[in-house]
Design a protein around this nucleic acid. Structure first.
Lengths: 114, 114
DNA sequence: ATCAACAGTTCCGAATTTCTGAACTACGGA
DNA sequence: TCCGTAGTTCAGAAATTCGGAACTGTTGAT
């Protein structure tokens, strides 16, 4: 298991953010994380809709979120704690994250916050 | 040439917007269009960076932008006039488009407005 | 120390998507 | 009618995504 890569704030690219959040499943994961005060684990996620997400896909979703700069992942014993980088991100791209989450939120039948 | 499809405002999906604008080339085209008062043609675009975009790719970019709901295309004689749907979009997804354009704008060496 | 269970990652082949040159359609002018 | 221009469609190659199976690393039990 190679060490996890997190881009520095100044290396975060808008296209990576948009790409990462253009997948509704990933956006739902991100929304769910951003509703949590502190870190959440990958497996605590369970199901996000009707579909059960295979764990290799889940792992990949987290990787995309992490490498785009949206989240911070930290191994803690057996599990991985994930949290958003919202505060930093808002500094670099003002209003972006909020507008995106709001856009998804507008729609009926979207992910529950918890 | 089949008729052009444009989604109704209420059918526009956030994931489609994010996806469309997650390609820097498309985002640059959109930014360029949004800097224009009235419609602009596809070929008026010329080059957008160092790379010359093949016309089939360009055509596809415009199609993605159109079908995601970002732009309105209208055939006018021999050419196609394109304009953004910014006003409508801002009503549906407040602040989203502006935040995205700003995010791209933050970066050095991005598309010139004209 | 050895073993088993668990959380998550990596690998790799299949399926899907993207890209773009070439052929094509549509319109306008000479 | 024939030509040039604007843009679209087609089709095959290249790249990306998806997900099952095998693997890594950690903890706790025996």
């Amino acid at each position: 298991m190679r060490p996890l890569f997190h881009p520095a704030l100044e290396d975060i690219r808008p296209e990576a953010i948009l790409y990462a959040l253009s997948d509704p499943e990933r956006a739902a994961i991100f929304a769910w994380l951003s509703g949590a005060g502190c870190g959440r684990t990958c497996s605590a996620l369970g199901q996000l809709g009707e579909r059960v997400i295979p764990k290799s896909s889940l792992s990949n979703h987290f990787k995309v979120l992490r490498e785009s700069g949206l989240i911070l992942s930290e191994r803690q014993g057996i599990e991985m704690r994930n949290q958003t980088r919202c505060a930093e991100l808002d500094e670099r791209f003002p209003g972006l994250i909020k507008a995106i989450l709001t856009a998804y939120g507008e729609l009926p039948g979207q992910p529950k916050a918890d």
